Simulated scan of single mutants.
Amino acid sequence: MKKETYKMGKLGKYEYMKKYTMIRAFLPDTRKATLSNIKIMMKLYKSVFLKPDEGTGGHGIYKITRSKSSFILRTGSNSRTFSSLNDLYTKVQRSLIRDKYIVQEGIDLLKHNNRPFDIRVMVQKNRKGSLDVTGIIGRQAKRNKIVTNYHSGGTPLPVETLLKSHLNEKSRKKYIQSIERLGKDASIVLGKNYRSKRAFGVDIAVDHKMNPWILEINTKPDMSIFNTLKNKTMYNRIRRYSENKG
């Protein structure tokens, strides 16, 4: 089997995937985190996220929000206000250069009980080598946190629970199916480059207009989050697939 052509961080995956029309519209604007790019994107969007190009688990992430006359920098549950983007950039410049950061369009996440959440779709290869959706789970951010990751204090919850206040039962079922389909489509596209990978964890944000956005695709997804659910059906299926018995 042909091995992956090259390893890609978040920016490389974004550049690669946006060539494909089937998923291009679902990708938030993502660029290298230079001062000029951050300035351009803060004119285009109300907020942006600064993320390590190759980081995982929600560590080292910053959020910049524009207010009338200042810029708010948030990390973890801390926030600081700057009068200019230049001053803000000076504060984080060393980290951005050392860890090769990207700047990504901020998606105003849908909320449940006043806490934002996103969705992880698990996609795995079956015995025949084709991709199946084996799990879907919601991740709700800890109060006052900017990231939803489980290892950063996020709460794993069934997607049905998180969507209950936004969609009725029939609409919810159809919507979840569309999210699963998007996760699979995105994995098929990225899988063309990562041919040896057997699993993909697709992180999908939903905005207030119910539009889905592909935030990131992990090529070494953590399955343990699914074990936190009371119903172990998905976790058992994921484990079965990971043992190549799918």
Rank of each mutant, 00 (worst) to 15 (best):
K43C: 04
T148Q: 07
I136H: 04
Y89A: 02
H208E: 11
S47L: 01
G183Y: 01
N114T: 11
P52M: 04
K125V: 00
L109Q: 11
G129A: 03
N168K: 13
T65F: 05
I137F: 12
L44R: 13
V206R: 05
F226G: 05
T34Q: 07
T161L: 08
K192R: 15
A205C: 07
A186N: 09
T30E: 05
V202D: 00
K220D: 08
R94K: 14
E243F: 03
G60E: 10
G201V: 12
F71I: 03
R94A: 11
G58K: 11
N168F: 12
L44F: 00
N218F: 12
S69N: 15
R127N: 08
E54H: 04
N218M: 12
K2M: 13
K142P: 01
S224A: 11
K7E: 15
E4V: 02
N126I: 01
T75K: 15
Q124F: 01
L35P: 07
R181S: 10
G9F: 06
D118W: 07
Y150S: 10
N227F: 05
M22P: 01
K13T: 03
E54F: 02
V92Q: 08
M17T: 07
T148H: 10
G55H: 01
I64A: 03
L215D: 00
K2T: 12
L229T: 08
Y14A: 06
M22T: 14
K232C: 00
K63D: 05
Y20A: 02
R74I: 02
S187I: 01
I217A: 08
F226W: 14
M22F: 05
S187L: 02
K3D: 12
Y6W: 08
R80N: 09
E15K: 10
Y20M: 01
Y20F: 15
I214M: 10
S165H: 09
T219I: 15
L109P: 06
L44Q: 11
N113A: 13
R172P: 02
S152L: 13
S83H: 11
K32E: 10
